[in-house]
Computed example of a mutant assay.
Amino acid sequence: MKPTAAVCAATMALLPAFGWAADSYAQAQASFIFNGARITIAPGNPQAGMYAARFAALPPVCEPACLSTGPAAKDVETVDEAAVLAFLVEVVGQNDGLMVDARMPQGRAAGFIPGSVSLPHETVAADNRYRDEILKALGVRVFEDLYNFSDAQALVVFDAGPTQNDAQKLIGNLLAAGYPPQKIRYYRGGMQVWSVLGLTIQEDMS
Rank of each mutant, 00 (worst) to 15 (best):
M1S: 13
P3D: 09
T4R: 12
T4L: 07
V7C: 11
V7Y: 08
A9L: 11
A13P: 04
L14I: 08
L14E: 11
L15W: 06
F18I: 11
G19F: 00
A21M: 09
A22S: 14
S24N: 06
Y25G: 06
Q27A: 15
Q27K: 09
Q29D: 10
Q29V: 11
Q29G: 13
Q29H: 15
F34I: 02
F34M: 11
F34Y: 14
A37F: 11
T40M: 14
Q47P: 07
Q47F: 14
A48Y: 00
M50H: 09
M50C: 07
M50I: 07
Y51W: 02
A52T: 09
A52R: 05
R54P: 09
F55R: 02
A57N: 02
P59Y: 08
P64H: 00
P64V: 03
C66Q: 14
C66F: 13
C66I: 06
T69A: 11
P71F: 13
P71T: 10
D75P: 02
E77H: 05
T78F: 08
T78P: 01
V79Q: 02
D80T: 06
E81S: 04
A82L: 05
F87T: 09
N95C: 13
G97R: 10
L98C: 13
R103Q: 06
R103T: 07
M104Q: 05
G107F: 00
A110Q: 08
P114L: 03
P114A: 01
V117C: 02
S118M: 05
P120L: 07
E122T: 15
A125G: 09
A125V: 06
L135K: 03
L135S: 01
L138Q: 09
L138P: 05
G139Y: 06
R141E: 09
L146P: 03
Y147D: 13
N148G: 08
F149Y: 12
Q153R: 12
V157R: 04
A160G: 04
G161I: 11
G161C: 12
T163A: 15
D166L: 10
Q168M: 13
N173I: 01
L175W: 00
L175P: 03
A176P: 01
G178W: 02
Q182A: 12
I184L: 00
Y186G: 02
R188F: 03
R188S: 12
V193F: 13
V196L: 04
L197A: 14
G198F: 02
L199D: 00
T200Y: 01
I201N: 05
I201W: 00
Q202A: 13
E203M: 04
D204H: 10
D204M: 05
M205S: 14
M205G: 09
M205Q: 13
